[in-house]
Design a protein around this nucleic acid. Structure first.
Length: 386
RNA sequence: GGUGAGGUGGCAGAGCGGCUAUGCGUUCGCCUGCAAAGCGAAUCUAUAGGGGUUCGAAUCCCUUCCUCACCUCCA
């Protein structure tokens, strides 16, 4: 039985997909204005591990990543470089794909450029207007959040708290916490024509539409970094529910911890950003995986290259073990192999799984036998390629 | 200020009521032409501070202090 910590329930919940053997996963993807950094890499490595493990456990996976190209940062970059924003976005999308590839992340099978979905966003927003769940204010369109009694439950905030936020500020909003769906401003330098006037579909609505068009009324896992919990995921859930018959159209909300650098969040202004491609080139994807997986995904990691290097010993042991596989696994090691997978069943406890794997390798090097198939299963789930 | 997650040996990081992981590091052996890797052994005996509960707490409760994240865009 697979258990996953669900941010909505704040509990390790037993995982059962809506469809028997198919797991639909939505991962909040990159905004296409810069290269992939370690933080992004960690997110996608984590879900890659999850999907590999789900497949090991007999599920099929269907993984969707939104590629955000309607965003102020992308527009700014395009203006700075005097290019069409599409050119900028596609350039970084290409780089992102390359970065995933270098890291042997093969789980993602749907990449959705949000700008390809604008007409659907328009139609979704229209539906909400017709149902009087959304309203106009100063030309913008907002979601009337009072229609969702459970709004705030994902980020664990009371109504009072929610009202304090300076979210999507604009005149004539019915309520301060209402979420913007369409922004009619022309100040962005780029805009789309719609029946609401020209403007841009707002951030949260982009993902809601992408999810609806790809997955329909529900899906199993929504993933992303913890920092997206509020307002992004809270807003997405509120919107999504309006199109679903279920109160819980998304089974699991899985949030990955941040990668810090010198104890602080990576950001360009602090100058502490580490690019994924540089690390992959320097250390290789195997080592990077062993490093990332040696911390539980919900914890923050203080990025430290020394610790990547420390993982070399483990990789070496794995390499040696790979040359010593047998036809059959000793019963003593079979227990450990099962324990490896059981650790991953328990909210993807990869540090524990790696410890068990290291133990297995030590025993094989000392003379015990592991079957080729068992060894391969483990490497396959970890994404290690020898 | 509000909300959430944390504070474990030199470092990383499990354990989440009793048997005090594990890895790196350090030291010494074996191996090797030398080194690296590997193997063996030794080393450090930790749980932020203060109160409780208990026969017994890193693990439960209270409290103080500290760290990080979110609350504008952010993976």
């Amino acid at each position: 039985m697979i258990k996953i910590f669900n941010s909505f329930s704040s509990n390790k919940d037993k995982f059962e997909p809506f469809e028997k053997n198919m797991v639909k996963v939505f991962i909040c993807g990159p905004t296409l204005y810069d290269y992939t950094h370690v933080g992004h890499a960690r997110i996608f490595l984590t879900y890659d591990l999850l999907c590999r493990h789900l497949r090991e456990r007999g599920y099929d996976t269907d993984v969707l990543v939104n590629m955000t190209d309607i965003n102020q940062n992308v527009f700014n970059k395009a203006k700075d470089e005097s290019k069409d924003y599409h050119v900028v976005a596609r350039f970084y999308a290409q780089k992102f794909a390359e970065d995933l590839n270098i890291l042997n992340i093969k789980s993602v099978n749907r990449f959705a450029y949000v700008s390809d979905y604008v007409e659907y966003m328009e139609s979704h927003i229209s539906q909400l207007l017709e149902q009087k769940i959304a309203y106009y204010a100063n030309g913008n369109v907002y979601l009337d959040i009072s229609k969702d009694r459970k709004y705030g439950m994902l980020s664990k905030q009371s109504r009072n708290q929610l009202q304090l936020h300076r979210l999507d500020i604009g005149p004539n909003k019915k309520s301060q916490e209402d979420i913007m769906l369409w922004n009619c401003s022309d100040d962005f330098g780029f805009s789309w024509k719609s029946k609401f006037g020209s403007g841009i579909p707002w951030w949260h609505m982009q993902d809601t539409t992408v999810a609806l068009e790809n997955f329909g009324a529900n899906y199993d896992i929504h993933g992303g970094a913890r920092e997206l919990l509020y307002p992004h995921h809270e807003a997405h859930l509120a919107q999504y529910k309006m199109f679903s018959t279920s109160e819980n159209p998304v089974k699991m909300w899985m949030h990955v911890g941040l990668v810090l650098s010198n104890g602080e969040k990576m950001s360009k202004s602090l100058g502490n950003v580490v690019w994924s491609k540089d690390l992959a080139q320097k250390y290789g994807q195997n080592l990077l995986r062993l490093y990332i997986f040696s911390t539980h995904y919900r914890e923050d990691v203080n990025f430290d290259e020394k610790q990547i290097i420390e993982r070399r010993q483990l990789l070496q042991k794995i390499n040696i073990t790979g040359t010593k596989t047998s036809k059959k696994t000793d019963s003593e090691l079979s227990v450990l192999v099962e324990a490896f997978f059981a650790a991953l069943d328990d909210d993807l406890n990869s540090p524990k799984a790696l410890e068990i794997f290291e133990n297995i390798c030590s025993k094989v090097i000392a003379g015990s036998n592991i079957g080729y198939d068992d060894f391969q299963r483990i490497c396959q789930v970890l994404g290690i390629v020898l």
